[in-house]
Structures are given as structure tokens and as C-alpha cells.
């Protein structure tokens, strides 16, 4: 094996890792938004990704909507389902503790998954790639154009969220809820409305992750749980609640998996990522970018 091909291989592993990592990061961001406002770990986050992919497939392949139109419609539909979930599963709980709410999200994820199986059946579905399937060759590595879309959407989401939380009044109100919900209520912020908004945002971001990944990996009703686990791992690795942490955690998970599969034994690639997670948690229990002082105030 010569050096050039080794460099090409390395680049290939990195590109693949960053792409998979971007998907994990999007799921992790979804976890963080809801966690910040409510302290709930929304275990139905993976189902939003699955719904994003499948709704898009139906709109584009079945009803022949062009990609550019089907994309926003899908995001709106999945956001609607996120809101519905908040109304149907989270709000009606009479004495909410963090634990009961988390269990409610598990129930919601099962219901969503079951409904998806009834609607779409158990087959996998494909979606047209946004800009063709001809791979771009750079220094011996083959890069799918769709990879750029995935990474690009992660960048757009991060930029959008940063602007939203730093510059808009609603975003600042949401940040306030995450600091201290009782105090936020005292200064006149409607916490319930903020919770609703957090579910909407998470669902929308999940949908985008699902739409962009389907042309690469197909989509079926049963994908959600695995993505939720990986995304949750990424969120914890980076520090629950931290957006830069979600990105670092997601990309790290993707890179460790891809490089581990490439240079070591591929059978243990999930173990490498989880071992890294454990090591980080031993050294920094709050995660890489997590704030220890904030964690101390959280109940979960």
C-alpha cells in the first residue's frame, strides 16, 4: 500500500465520519433544545428524524412535489407532529416530574413508530439525491454530493440557532427558561409556550436531519431508536445542553466510528465511540463543553 492511497483512505474516513457525525450532531441539538427548556430527555427525537425522511419520500416520490417544495412542507408536517406530541403526551400529565415526562416520551416514540409502520409498511425507501449521485473525487477520496448537503445543513442550523438564541427576544426568553424556569415565569415569560416552541424546533431539526440523510442511507420506520441512541451519546459526550458541545460530540462520535472501523476492527466501532464517551465522562462528568455549575442546578 503506498502513501498516496493511505492519505486517500484517511481522507475518506474523515469525510465519512464528518457526514455521519453531522447527522448525530443534528439529533443531539434536538435533544439539547428540549433539555434546556424542560430538562426532559426526549426519547422520541429519533422518530422525528425517521418521520422527516419518510414524509419527504411520500411527498416527493408519491405526490411528485419537487424537492424544493417538499422540503419545507415536510418540516412543517413533522413540526406539527412535534407540537401534537407536546399537547397529547407532555401537557396532560398532572403532576409532572422529569422522570414521568421522559417515560411519556418513550410512549410517544412507540406510538409514532407504530403509526409509521401502519402508514409506510416495513420496507425501506429511497429519496432522490439533491444534486445527483456522481461522486466527487478529491485526492483519492470519493465524496457524495449529498455529504455536502448534510454538512451544509448542520452549519445552517447552527448559525440559525445561534442567531435565534442570542439576538431574538423569543430566543432569549427560551434561554432564560433553561437557566431558571421559576424566575423566568416571574418576569412574565410564558414557560408553557416556550416548552411548546422547544418541541417545535426539535422536531423541525430532526426532520431536516431525516430529509438530508435519506438519500444516503435510505429510511424505514425502525430507524429512530438507533439514531436517538447515537444522538444522545453525542449530546452527553459534548455536554448536555451545550450547542457547541452537540456539534463537537456528534462529529467526534462519527469520526471515532469511521476511523475505528477503518484502521482497527470494524466489528467494534460502536464500542470505540462508547468507550470514548465513558472516558470523557470519567474525566469531565459534565461532558466536553458542558458547564459544571449549570449541571449542578439541574434535577436530571
Amino acid at each position: 500500500m503506498n502513501m498516496a492511497s493511505l492519505a486517500g483512505q484517511l481522507l475518506q474516513y474523515i469525510v465519512t465520519g464528518v457526514t455521519i457525525g453531522s447527522i448525530y450532531a443534528m439529533v443531539a441539538i434536538g435533544f439539547n433544545i428540549i433539555y434546556n427548556v424542560t430538562e426532559i430527555i426526549n426519547l422520541a427525537q429519533g422518530e422525528f428524524v425517521m418521520l422527516g425522511g419518510l414524509v419527504m419520500v411520500s411527498l416527493h416520490m408519491l405526490w411528485k412535489l419537487p424537492l424544493i417544495a417538499a422540503f419545507p412542507v415536510t418540516v412543517v408536517i413533522v413540526t406539527g407532529i412535534g407540537l401534537l406530541m407536546n399537547y397529547a403526551a407532555i401537557r396532560p400529565i398532572r403532576r409532572p416530574t422529569v422522570l414521568t415526562l421522559i417515560i411519556a416520551t418513550i410512549a410517544a416514540s412507540m406510538i409514532i413508530k407504530g403509526a409509521a409502520m401502519l402508514i409506510w409498511g416495513t420496507d425501506s425507501f429511497d429519496l432522490t439525491a439533491f444534486s445527483g449521485r456522481t461522486p466527487i473525487l478529491i485526492a483519492g477520496a470519493a465524496i457524495q454530493p449529498q455529504y455536502f448537503w448534510v454538512i451544509g445543513f448542520l452549519v445552517v442550523i447552527v448559525a440559525g440557532l445561534t442567531f435565534f438564541f442570542d439576538k431574538t427576544i423569543i430566543g432569549k426568553a427560551m434561554s432564560a427558561c433553561s437557566e431558571n424556569a421559576a424566575a423566568a415565569q416571574l418576569v412574565g415569560i410564558d414557560v408553557r409556550w416556550m416548552v411548546l416552541l422547544s418541541f417545535a424546533l426539535s422536531a423541525a431539526i430532526g426532520a431536516i436531519a431525516g430529509i438530508t440523510m435519506t438519500p444516503i442511507a435510505l429510511m424505514d420506520y425502525d430507524r429512530g431508536a438507533m439514531l436517538a441512541i447515537k444522538g444522545f451519546g453525542a449530546a452527553v459526550l459534548g455536554g448536555l445542553g451545550s450547542f457547541p458541545g452537540a456539534i463537537v460530540g456528534g462529529l467526534m462520535m462519527g469520526l471515532i466510528e469511521s476511523l475505528g472501523a477503518g484502521f482497527l476492527w470494524s466489528g467494534y466501532k460502536d464500542a470505540y465511540a462508547l468507550a470514548a464517551l465513558l472516558i470523557v465522562l470519567f474525566i469531565r462528568p459534565s461532558g466536553i463543553m458542558g458547564n459544571r455549575d449549570v449541571i449542578r442546578f439541574k434535577r436530571f
Partner: peptide, 12 residues
């Protein structure tokens, strides 16, 4: 979602 890493290794 992706088996590129495994295939890249095989290619080498």
C-alpha cells in the same frame, strides 16, 4: 447509515 469506511479499507 454508511459502509464507506469498511469498503475503503477493503479497496486498499
Amino acid at each position: 447509515t454508511d459502509m464507506t469506511a469498511q469498503l475503503t479499507k477493503i479497496k486498499g
